[in-house]
Amino acid sequence: MAGRQKLRILCFGDSLTAGYSSLGAIYHPYAEMLIQFLEMAFPEMDVEADIEGEPGETVKFGFLPRMQGLFSPKNTEGNKNYDWAIVLGGTNDLARGISDEEIFHTLKAVWDVPLRRNIKVIALTVPEPGVKVGEASAAKRIALNDAIKSYRRTNFHAFDLATAMPYFKMSPRDQQRYWDDAIHYTPDGYDFIGNKIGTFLVSLLAKEKAENHPSPAKRRRYFKDDEKVFDEEDDGQRAIDRGYVVVRRRDLD
């Protein structure tokens, strides 16, 4: 519809972005719920999301060339005018024993591609798997997530998906409802993630809107006798002692 505001989002990552479920028989990306959530929050807005999720891909060996390729001049469908890029990766790297330092170093380069094009970035932390892992592996995931949350840059935001999607703090019923296997989610699980990311993005968009369109200053209202000098005002401290205090409208503004 002409005149409607558009919001373009790039959802980038691995199988968790693709919405992989039921051993690949179902793909239900979180972006579907994200779009619905944003359009409910902002009815005047048309939301579009491109889903770039590659099952099995690692941050270290696949993310950067793929992100660069999306914006390459040789890509006839590239260089799209995205407003936001949501990036999720690291699960496959950790499973392959790649260090958290190496993953984070590459993630910064991946984020840099859209940031240099004035595209705002939401980096998601790596959610915990639905299975107990060794202490060393768990510590690497926590260290990586701490690095993501601590990173500071203009137009960069981190959303703690790991805290929003805590397998071991959920009830057995919710674990069964949201998790398809130890790594991937059911369609309900991906909808849950889309809802959580949507809530976060709505808060960022609302803040942007408030900063770009500040409320106009209230016009001072004048009332009858605003400038009149009452006899009690000339009495100074004696008037106060007698219980007289004159308060004008302008004193309250």
Results as ranks from 00 to 15, higher is better:
45 M>N: 07
196 K>C: 10
195 N>R: 13
60 K>G: 03
102 E>C: 06
75 N>Y: 13
69 G>W: 00
48 E>H: 15
194 G>Y: 11
217 A>K: 13
43 P>N: 03
19 G>S: 00
156 F>L: 07
245 V>D: 03
55 P>T: 15
57 E>T: 09
75 N>P: 06
222 Y>V: 08
110 V>D: 10
70 L>H: 09
97 G>F: 13
172 P>Y: 00
85 A>T: 01
200 F>K: 10
225 D>T: 14
2 A>W: 12
202 V>P: 02
123 A>D: 04
179 W>L: 15
70 L>C: 09
4 R>N: 14
126 V>I: 14
235 D>L: 12
40 M>D: 12
15 S>F: 00
67 M>C: 06
230 F>I: 01
114 P>K: 03
6 K>T: 11
117 R>G: 11
85 A>N: 07
75 N>W: 04
13 G>D: 13
48 E>N: 08
91 T>N: 13
246 V>E: 05
199 T>I: 07
87 V>M: 10
151 Y>N: 10
121 V>Y: 08
61 F>C: 12
21 S>T: 02
104 F>S: 10
69 G>T: 12
80 K>I: 09
99 S>Y: 04
213 H>I: 08
55 P>N: 11
59 V>I: 06
6 K>Q: 14
215 S>V: 11
168 F>L: 03
58 T>F: 04
33 M>Q: 14
227 E>R: 15
126 V>A: 06
97 G>V: 07
40 M>N: 12
35 I>D: 15
85 A>M: 07
34 L>P: 02
102 E>L: 14
195 N>Q: 09
26 I>F: 03
16 L>E: 00
241 D>W: 05
50 D>T: 07
180 D>V: 02
51 I>N: 10
130 G>C: 01
59 V>N: 07
125 T>F: 11
41 A>T: 11
23 L>Y: 11
142 I>V: 06
94 L>M: 12
61 F>I: 09
148 I>F: 01
241 D>G: 08
4 R>S: 07
56 G>S: 02
13 G>K: 09
28 H>D: 07
153 R>G: 01
9 I>G: 02
65 P>A: 10
237 Q>K: 14
65 P>T: 09
223 F>T: 01
194 G>V: 15
15 S>V: 02
219 R>H: 06
99 S>K: 12
